[in-house]
C-alpha cells in the first residue's frame, strides 16, 4: 500500500505461516446476577467457561451454537470490547496489552469485527465515506488521505464514490450498507497472507 508514511510501527508477521494467528486458552467470563433488596451478587451466569482454540494463518474458524450460548461474548472478549475474567490470548506470537506485547490500539488495527446488523453498526449522522475514513483517521492518517482511500475502497466494492460517498446510511440499500460497515477496518491489507 502507499500508506507506508502513515503506518505507525507495523506489526511484524512473526514466525511465518507455522505460527498460529490466534491462540486462545481457557477464556472465562462470568456475569453476576444481582437480586434482592441490597443488590447482592448471589449467582453468576457462566457465559464463557473455559474456551480454548487456535486459528492457523489463512484458515477460517466457525463457531456454532444455539442462541445465547456465548458465541458473541467470545467474539467480544477476543476483540477486547469486554474484559475477560481469566484466560490468555496470543495474537501472532504476542500478548495483547501486556508487558512486551502489542498495544491495544495496534491490536485493533489488525483485528476487526463484522457486525451482524450492518445498518446498526453505521452512525446515522456520518456519510458512508466519513464512516470508512474514520478508522484510518483514528490511527493518525491525515484527513485528505483518509478520504481518498475511503473513495478508493468504495470504488473497489462497486459503489461509485461520487454517487454513494456522500450518502447517509438510511438511504443505502442493505447490501450497500453491509459493504460500508465491513470496510471500516483500517488498512485492509496491513498483513498479507
Amino acid at each position: 500500500m502507499n500508506s507506508a508514511l502513515h503506518t505507525p510501527s507495523p506489526v511484524h508477521d512473526r514466525g511465518g505461516p507455522a505460527q498460529p494467528l490466534l491462540v486462545v486458552r481457557d477464556l472465562k467470563k462470568h456475569f453476576p446476577v444481582r437480586s434482592g433488596p441490597l443488590e447482592r451478587t448471589k449467582k453468576f451466569v457462566h457465559a464463557v467457561d473455559g474456551v480454548s482454540f487456535s486459528v492457523p494463518k489463512g484458515k477460517t474458524l466457525g463457531i456454532v451454537g444455539e442462541s445465547g450460548c456465548g458465541k458473541s461474548t467470545t467474539a467480544r472478549l477476543i476483540a477486547r470490547l469486554m474484559q475477560a475474567d481469566s484466560g490468555s490470548m496470543v495474537f501472532d506470537g504476542e500478548g495483547v496489552d501486556e508487558f512486551g506485547g502489542i498495544r491495544l490500539k495496534e491490536f485493533r488495527r489488525n483485528l476487526q469485527m463484522v457486525f451482524q446488523d450492518s445498518f446498526a453498526s453505521l452512525n446515522p449522522r456520518l456519510t458512508i465515506a466519513e464512516t470508512i475514513a474514520y478508522g484510518p483517521r483514528v490511527h493518525g492518517m491525515p484527513a485528505a488521505e483518509a478520504r481518498r482511500q475511503a473513495h478508493d475502497l468504495l470504488a473497489r466494492v462497486g459503489l461509485a464514490p461520487a454517487q454513494f460517498g456522500s450518502r447517509y446510511p438510511h438511504d443505502l440499500s442493505r447490501a450497500a450498507s453491509a459493504s460500508g460497515s465491513t470496510s471500516p477496518g483500517p488498512w485492509p491489507s496491513t498483513r498479507a497472507w
Binding site: L104, E106, R109, M113, F115, D117, A120, P186
Partner: peptide, 17 residues
C-alpha cells in the same frame, strides 16, 4: 450501547473521539 459505538471502539478510537 448501539453497534456503531462498539464498531468505533473496535477501530481503536479514544473515548474522547
Amino acid at each position: 450501547q448501539l453497534d456503531y459505538i462498539e464498531a468505533a471502539r473496535m477501530s481503536g478510537a479514544s473515548a474522547f473521539s
